[in-house]
């Protein structure tokens, strides 16, 4: 816990951040976007946060913001720090942290491809998974992939004998699968 204490002391030296201890080995930080690179450098240099576990992007479309979460692990003090920042969805640009963490290149490339959020200074913003996709970045909330699928593919039109027989008796298909999906219900 000494290490933990050390980390907490370290964090008090940074301005404008909110520190939230979730449990023993998890710390949540809310950081203004422009402070983040300096914070990451501090964590890497002074507390052994060498491992960039992931960068996650969340599209908060109602607030018109992207949330970026940098998950860092320190092999030295066995603690995970999740640093949260919010950047405007429009124009959707942020700075790369590739010079601090090489793995950032992959995550930034992935986020650019899936969300259209551009990272200045990232070494490689080329397409990776969706090389033949020219639609909008698909992970954005406004892209309705199910609607896209329904536009591009047909449901299999089965006509088995038993169905024809039931139709002759006056029965038949009552509710198709897509008509009653809970996951498609509106609202929360």
């Amino acid at each position: 816990m000494d290490n933990q204490q050390q980390l907490e002391n370290l964090l008090t030296t940074v301005d404008n951040i909110t520190v939230n201890l979730d449990n023993q080995r998890r710390i949540r930080l809310d950081v203004p976007p422009k402070e983040l690179p300096a914070l990451l450098e501090l964590l890497k240099g002074r507390a052994g946060f060498l491992h960039l576990s992931a960068i996650s992007c969340v599209d908060w479309i109602d607030e018109n913001e992207f949330e970026l979460v940098y998950h860092l692990w320190s092999y030295q003090i066995n603690t995970l720090v999740s640093a949260h920042i919010r950047v405007p969805r429009d124009p959707g640009v942020y700075i790369s942290v590739y010079d601090l963490f090489q793995p950032a290149a992959f995550y930034e490339r992935d986020i650019h491809e899936m969300y259209g959020l551009y990272f200045e200074g990232s070494p490689d913003m080329e397409k990776f998974i969706l090389t033949e996709w020219d639609g909008p970045p698909p992970m954005r909330k406004e892209f309705d992939s199910e609607a896209w699928v329904n536009d591009h593919f047909d449901w299999q039109d089965y006509r088995p004998d038993w169905l024809i027989e039931i139709e002759e008796q006056g029965g038949g298909i009552e509710t198709r699968p897509d008509e009653q999906r809970f996951s498609q219900s509106k609202g929360k």
Partner: peptide, 25 residues
């Protein structure tokens, strides 16, 4: 990384698989 906005479905799920690093960079 799983995010909920209090709804019936996950708001965001991010899977950080080990292979993403190993197989690319």
């Amino acid at each position: 990384y799983v995010v909920s906005n209090g709804g019936q479905k996950p708001y965001r799920v991010h899977v950080r698989g080990p292979s993403a690093m190993h197989a690319v960079q």
